[in-house]
Simulated scan of single mutants.
Amino acid sequence: MTLHGRAEALSTLGRLMETEQLVTVTGPGGVGKSALVAEAVRGQRRRNRPDLIHLDLAPVSDPELVPRWLSYGLKQINGGGRRQTLLVVDTCEHVADAAGAALRDLIAERPALRAIATSRIPTAADGATLPLGPLDVDAAVELFRDCAPGYRDDGAAEGLADDDTIREICELLDGLPLAVTIAAAQLQRRSPDELLTRLAGADGALALVGGGPEVPERQRTLRDSMWWSRRVCTPGERLLWARAAVFPGAFTLAHATEVCADERLSGSELVRAFAGLRAQGLFAAAGDKDDELVWMPRAVRAYGRQQLARLGEETEFQRRCVAWSMDVLKTNSVE
């Protein structure tokens, strides 16, 4: 499948792979980190033909086992560390600190080793970091059409809606490649207009199912992807994720503190949680002009609202958000 909308990121990653021993690609779940790395590795192997080892840390739940897991993988290559070797390590986020430390040690021991890691959060590893964000809407539309059943190589669509409908679908999915891919596969069972109607509901994207047994369980639905992200979060981050889901639009740290802080989530803990959720891409920057302003993608907000309901706090924090909104309106009207 073609890698859509990633020409600049692919070029940057290729340059970093030439100059850095370790590169970590970061971004929210489903943003396409592994796909980008796979394409970059194909280009690297065509040019330099290094030995390649690919490891996935998803099955490793104990951080103390990470060094052993990585070392065992490297034993597949002979040559005592002297041969050019490219190590790809996927899914580092749940053992990020241990993975970063282990990769640092391996690189120090093996001058001929280069490593690329993917993680939903930054690791403690040295080297370069490449943050990856969602696709712009044009690239998302191209990806949707590429994945949609019935779209022929000559560019003709069999039963597909026009670009406006597909564009609306991709905008509702915030350009997240995993979500776009899952949504496109739904055209086997429903029309584009039916899909758009379903996605218009707050929880619509979370309910879509896609991917076969070859797809990692954490990527078969957006709900699975959100569950994996929540697993990585600290207790404070989980609580703030749920409570901040009451914001209908963009907000700042000060807004989140006013609405979401209480005895369970102190101001200092909220500051740390806010930074952590931003680092994971669960709170996304709302624009270049105001770096303090963040927003929650629709699927992230929908999952947060579900968690807030399970906590039994939905009514209270909706009330707080409404009260805060009224205060803002009064202040703005006075000014």
Rank of each mutant, 00 (worst) to 15 (best):
R298D: 12
M326H: 07
L132W: 12
V246F: 04
A256Q: 07
A128R: 14
P216M: 06
T85Q: 06
R42I: 00
V37D: 13
A299V: 15
P50S: 02
K289D: 00
V141A: 02
L199E: 08
D56S: 15
L65F: 07
R15K: 09
D288R: 15
W69K: 09
R167A: 02
A245D: 14
Y303S: 10
G236C: 06
F251E: 02
L195S: 03
G27Q: 12
E64P: 00
P28I: 13
A115Q: 09
I107S: 09
V37W: 06
L277K: 04
D288H: 13
R49W: 07
R218E: 15
N48M: 06
P122G: 01
F144T: 06
L187C: 04
P111D: 13
G267S: 11
Q21F: 05
A98G: 08
T19W: 07
T181R: 15
L143S: 04
G210I: 12
A38N: 03
L87D: 09
R15C: 02
S11D: 10
Q306C: 01
P63T: 10
E217I: 06
I53K: 02
G267Q: 08
T129P: 09
R114Y: 01
D62Q: 13
W324S: 08
V60M: 12
L87K: 07
R189Q: 12
L10C: 00
R223Q: 03
G210A: 09
P177M: 08
G287P: 02
S225W: 07
A185N: 05
G276Y: 10
L196M: 03
G276A: 08
G204K: 10
D105R: 14
G210T: 10
L240I: 12
W69T: 12
D154I: 10
T221P: 00
A99L: 08
G73A: 09
A117C: 09
G210H: 09
A96H: 07
G127Q: 07
A58D: 06
L36D: 01
M326S: 05
T19H: 12
L293W: 01
R230Q: 13
R189M: 11
R46W: 06
Y72C: 08
A286H: 06
S268K: 06
E314P: 02
V322F: 02
V31K: 08
R220Y: 04
R320K: 06
Q307I: 04
D51A: 14
D203G: 05
S71C: 09
A205Q: 01
V60S: 04
E109G: 10
T2V: 09
D56N: 09
I169F: 05
R82W: 03
R45E: 13
L173G: 00
R190K: 07
A273I: 13
G14R: 15
L113S: 03
D97N: 12
D62T: 15
G281W: 08
E109W: 04
A112T: 15
E158M: 12
L178N: 04
P213R: 06
A285E: 11
H54L: 11
Y72D: 13
A299S: 14
R231A: 14
R83I: 00
D126I: 13
Q318K: 03
E171K: 15
E314G: 03
D97H: 15
A284R: 14
A200K: 10
Q44P: 04
F274L: 00
L176I: 11
E335N: 11
G27H: 11
A99H: 04
